[in-house]
């Protein structure tokens, strides 16, 4: 029983980071109708930005998070303005193709800048733990989970209580109607893409103390992000939280009790089933 709880706890903590990755993707899809194939690469950009500040400024990776988020947000706005805005009216395959291209270019820029070797950083808490009864918690995972909760709450307030949030939600529901209401949807789109990039970069910063950074691991995270968003419902921000936690727990249990070589199958199978049976996600009502 202790072992089971331990495994579920691990799953929840990992799932928190998955949720952040998924929220960004879901937000972008909800407002812009773009399936962002570069999302995992954005996360890796976040990892390397953190690494850069960590090595140059010699400060704790968790302390440079505001900087990383800022860089991510700016990059997001620039990418949206220069590359996505011009094709806003093009068929959907154009935006898929475009994000594939953006991902390739970004990951190769990282490759030229930081080289081919996997980068690992050592912090005080990279391997430290704390205990609650018989359950062990990773310190790095705990800090990142705590920050995840803070960011998600902040985001919920932003979306729910502010004018900007209302504008974003309006644009997601019906862009033309929002435009008629005097909302500048073009600006909203740029902001949303910036937020999506920033959230992915944040996830990268949270993961760096425990995992490694490598320019070519982006697609692995993109796939995770897809799974999380589909589980939660594409475009459903609250659903992405549930999707993230669900994926984290499923993977943990699957790897522990079935086989680690089939670990990714569990998430994918859930993904496919939800896609087929509840296209609006587990936590949403169908739009159609």
């Amino acid at each position: 029983m202790v072992e089971f709880i331990q495994i579920v706890v691990n799953g929840i903590f990992t799932g928190g980071v998955y949720a952040i990755i998924g929220i960004g993707l879901s937000l972008i899809f909800g407002v812009m109708r773009i399936v962002n194939f570069a999302h995992g690469v954005f996360l890796v950009v976040g990892m390397f930005t953190t690494l850069f500040f960590f090595e140059r400024l010699h400060v704790d990776p968790f302390l440079v998070i505001p900087l990383v988020v800022l860089v991510g947000g700016l990059l997001g706005v620039i990418v949206e303005r220069s590359l996505l805005e011009p094709i806003a009216r093009a068929p959907e395959h154009a935006s898929i193709l475009m994000t594939v291209g953006i991902g390739l270019v970004l990951s190769n820029v990282l490759l030229f800048t930081f080289g081919d070797a996997p980068q690992i950083i050592n912090t005080r808490y990279s391997t430290s733990t704390w205990h609650l009864g018989p359950i062990t918690f990773s310190t790095a995972l705990t800090i990142s989970f705590f920050l995840t909760v803070v960011v998600i709450s902040g985001l919920a307030l932003l979306l729910g209580r502010t004018d900007l949030g209302r504008a974003i939600r309006a644009a997601a529901q019906n862009a033309d109607a929002a435009e008629l209401q005097g909302i500048n949807t073009r600006r909203v789109r740029s902001l949303v893409f910036g937020m999506g990039f920033a959230l992915a970069a944040l996830a990268g910063a949270l993961l760096l103390p425990q995992l490694f950074a490598h320019p070519s691991i982006g697609p692995t995270y993109t796939l995770k992000a897809f799974i999380v968003t589909v589980l939660g419902g594409m475009g459903n921000v609250a659903g992405a939280i549930g999707g993230g936690l669900l994926l984290g727990i499923t993977e943990s249990l699957g790897a522990a009790y079935v086989s680690s070589s089939y670990r990714d199958v569990f998430g994918l199978a859930a993904f496919l089933l939800v896609l087929l049976l509840r296209p609006a996600g587990l936590f949403g009502r169908s739009r159609t």
């Binding site: 011009p86 094709i87 193709l97 291209g101 390739l104 270019v105 990951s107 190769n108 030229f112």
Partner: peptide, 20 residues
């Protein structure tokens, strides 16, 4: 050498923008 994927990505972006 080593830049082929980068150019690949650039090519895709240019095609989408200018020769959709």
């Amino acid at each position: 050498p080593g830049k082929s994927l980068f150019v690949y990505g650039l090519l895709i972006i240019l095609v989408v923008l200018f020769a959709p």
